[in-house]
Design a binder for these strands. Structure first.
Lengths: 219, 219
DNA sequence: CTCCGCCTCCACCATCCGGTGGAGCCAGGG
DNA sequence: CCCTGGCTCCACCGGATGGTGGAGGCGGAG
């Protein structure tokens, strides 16, 4: 194999030159093209069919995320590494959802950049540590946020039976259906539903459903 | 600084020896203790107060995930790297939610293992490529799963007004409240609620709330 | 043993819901 | 110009819901 073919996309000539120099130092990597914005990138990638694209985000005309989307829509085989100075949560998630294979900060060490290009060319992902941290936060955070905890606490005050009834209620069952399904009298169900309302401090069953769902959605 | 202090936890003596040898090759890393299972690990970590713990998952008595949870509960300052042969989605997410700083497969190259220990000691995360891939999948996937899409499609059939009413319904409001809040007659609200039921193919408002919630929870 | 909490049920009643079958108004498209 | 679809409202009805007060059984804590 002739090495990894790379296209560099950045509106700053200095950055392009720097990347060219860094990547040029690796014998198995070859920079086969440059683009100055997203629009340009579409053409260059179409012409050069590179293995990897190093894509800046902030660029005139078309930004890196939009360009990534377009490339993916066109079914490009090139793996895309997003390369930027800033790493907001939103950008990270957006880029990855668009199918970016890597997300690196511009403070990445030259050696790591080369490693990233090689790894991504092999189909592996490569993220900067802080990006990984954000990603971990993204899957960890939802595990315990505000109203979730409140819902848990309130639901914990329910007795076993009440909880069963509350679950049934939030499945959209009527009292009669619940009675049948739990082998109870309708009167009993109504009693339980009543105490659920009191304990959760609500006045109708839709609100019960909200609490149960909030407390539930385990991920 | 005297180097990174590491405790190795694995029930297999061969694995422990191997790790000791790999890490021993690095002058700035020192293996200060070993444990043969999770229970043991708690003691050793409490005694040695290491910077980093290399934790196997499959172990007798107490597995690595449980041990990680316990350590975190006790407010340990040690960063934990989970080290295992297998990487099921579930384990990865669980470990990270428990606060593991790293998740490495046992096929990791010795050099990378040392790098991981150093990076984790500095507070950065370190994941094997395949683990990173899973993590990306985990944050990308929820963007469109089964009943979510169905809910979206059904809700799309609602008119503007009906959608407003549906939202109000799933906030737990009564028809009268909705009427007031949207400056409508109660009769109108009832009409809208009726068509919402028809279009969503449900028979009561709790089920409407389910659809709206399913379609909603953007992440 | 007695009290307390939970579970089970009852009756009564006002209100809310959900279903049905209308009707008038308006804007956009054929 | 008429038809369609969305929005607004009306009346009527049976059944479901939510609120109140009460009662008996049962098991555990004091």
């Amino acid at each position: 194999m002739a090495g990894v073919r790379v296209v560099v996309v950045d509106d700053d000539p200095l950055v392009r030159a720097g990347l060219r120099m860094i990547l040029g130092g690796a014998p198995d990597v070859e920079v086969v093209g440059e683009a100055v914005d997203g629009q340009d990138a579409l053409d260059v990638v179409a012409r050069e069919l590179p293995d990897v694209v190093l894509m800046d985000i902030r660029m005139p005309r078309m930004d890196g995320l939009a360009a990534t989307r377009r490339l993916k829509e066109r079914g490009t085989t090139a793996r895309i590494i997003v390369l930027t100075t800033f790493d907001t949560d939103e950008m990270v998630l957006t880029a990855l959802q668009l199918g970016a294979a890597g997300f690196l900060l511009k403070d990445t060490a030259p050696a790591d950049l080369v490693v990233a290009v090689r790894r991504v060319a092999l189909g592996e992902p490569m993220l900067s540590p802080s990006v990984t941290t954000q990603l971990i936060a993204a899957v960890t955070r939802p595990a315990d946020d505000g109203r979730r905890r409140k819902a848990r606490i309130l639901l914990a005050r329910l007795t076993e039976r009440e909880r069963e009834v509350a679950d049934a209620v939030s499945d959209g069952m009527t009292n009669t259906e619940i009675a049948r399904s739990l082998h109870l009298g309708v009167a009993t169900v109504k009693t339980h539903v009543g105490s659920v309302f009191t304990k959760l401090e609500v006045t109708n069953r839709v609100q019960v459903a909200r609490y149960v769902h909030d407390a539930a959605d385990e991920r």
